[in-house]
């Protein structure tokens, strides 16, 4: 059983850590993309969206070079007491963040853009500083965006395969996530175990998306 539970635990840990990091990173990024007048912001937006169209192996390949002992990311590894970030849990988190970034940034950006200028102007005339208005007006009004972003980021990270394989390999308990172990079970003709994990993931994905949609409808009705 451990060979089933270990990838489940690892995948949930990876998705949780990655989603938290993603929310922290994406909020200011999405806010900037939604509010900035800078002409080059669409270039940044395109960069963020790149993982949507890039094969995971391409992203994984560059990440491997970046995180490896000779890459700029790898050069930081000794400070964390590691030889390299490649083939580590930390490396996977880094890869997942890049890979799932558009799934969190885009809904957040849409939600921030939907707010418009007016509520923030109202907040300003009521003497709320821009930072205060952000937390008391923009964030609560963008609640559906945060929910969608978090769920999509989490679910997308759970299903990640190509990038993990490139930069993580399949070290049990360290980098062997669900999708990789399913692949492994199929390779070794352990169909029954593959079925359990694959079916479980399909069911989980369905439940998560359904719950998100229903919750968003409720938030929508409360918010209007």
């Amino acid at each position: 059983m451990e060979e089933l539970w270990s990838p489940i635990r690892l995948t949930l840990a990876l998705a949780t850590v990655s989603t938290l990091c993603l929310l922290v990173l994406s909020t200011p990024l999405a806010w900037w993309l939604a509010r900035s007048q800078a002409r080059w912001k669409e270039a940044v937006a395109a960069l963020v969206a790149l993982p949507l169209v890039l094969p995971a192996t391409v992203l994984g390949f560059y990440l491997l070079l970046f995180l490896g002992p000779d890459g700029p990311g790898g050069a930081l590894a000794p400070y964390f007491g590691m030889r390299s970030f490649a083939f580590t849990f930390e490396g996977l988190v880094f890869g997942s963040i890049l890979y799932s970034l558009p799934f969190v940034v885009q809904p957040l950006r849409n939600a921030f853009e939907a707010i418009g200028d007016r509520p923030l102007e109202v907040a300003a005339t009521l003497r709320a500083s821009p930072l205060n208005a952000f937390f008391t007006v923009a964030v609560p009004m963008a609640r559906p965006g945060f929910l969608t972003g978090a769920v999509l980021g989490f679910a997308h990270t759970m299903g990640e395969f190509g990038v993990v394989l490139m930069i993580g390999g399949a070290i049990p308990g360290e980098t062997e996530v669900l999708s990789v172990s399913i692949y492994g079970f199929v390779e070794t003709l352990q169909w029954e175990k593959a079925h359990i994990l694959a079916g479980g993931m399909a069911g989980f994905a369905f439940v998560v998306i359904l719950a998100m949609m229903m919750l968003n409808r409720r938030l929508d009705m409360v918010g209007r």
Binding site: E121, V122, A123, A124, T125, R127, A128, S129, P130
Partner: peptide
Amino acid sequence: AHKRPVGYVF
């Protein structure tokens, strides 16, 4: 704006 003591009705 947030340092001006105005009341604004839109």
